[in-house]
Design a protein around this nucleic acid. Structure first.
Lengths: 105, 105
DNA sequence: TCTATTATTCGATTATCATCGAACAATAGA
DNA sequence: TCTATTGTTCGATGATAATCGAATAATAGA
């Protein structure tokens, strides 16, 4: 029987630099975080990607596992937000610098 | 007949953010750039890694192809340096922020 | 010309990753 | 209870990537 496992989020000091950079190195994931940064928290279905929902779910799992994104359940929706405090605490300035760079290209 | 191909380096505007982040997402490559940043330009053989030289050569190729590192030939050695100007021109503050974060963990 | 040094290239292998469709889980609402 | 919605999980597949040993290339120096 398949079980909906509970989501696990790394603590601030469990977040690794290479992990965060890997999370951001995929164009889809970078765009997800960019939208979360500019438009605030959003459900998975509100991003307007053309990829399948299983692929999208995979990308959100990577973002959660690397400590970039927090997901809370609200009804049938999964509402995502950037873990700004933890990221800033762990690697000061990194998120903003990457987000700024993302608007350049 | 195998030919030693000429190295090709991307111009500043050919450098992509996801490419740079991918280059930095590997621990070996991150350490290479960290050493280049703190100790200046170095030949491939001077980094003290325990991996094979073909693997190390592969990592340097990735760093070149993504625009992070410049390699010049000096005798039988390949001397590497960070492309600071191009990176700063393309994505201001990115390199320093990542390097600073690399010293934290 | 021969040898040592340094690094790249090739070919192969193993591992990881992105992607998808189908099935399942959890919730909301009729 | 039934159905729709939303997202996760599973299993599979094709594409990338990391790694290595061996062969090759380029140069320096004896």
């Amino acid at each position: 029987m398949q079980v909906m496992r509970q989501m696990i989020f790394p603590t601030s000091n469990q977040i690794t630099l290479t992990g965060v950079l890997y999370a951001f190195s995929d164009p889809t994931r970078l765009e997800i975080v960019r939208q979360l940064a500019t438009e605030g928290e959003k459900a998975c279905c509100e991003f307007g990607f053309k990829i399948s929902k299983s692929t999208l779910s995979h990308h959100f799992k990577v973002l959660r596992d690397t400590g970039v994104v927090y997901t809370r359940t609200e009804g049938t929706q999964s509402v995502n937000s950037i873990r700004r405090e933890e990221l800033e605490d762990r690697f000061p300035g990194l998120l903003d610098t990457i987000l700024k760079a993302a608007t350049i290209s």
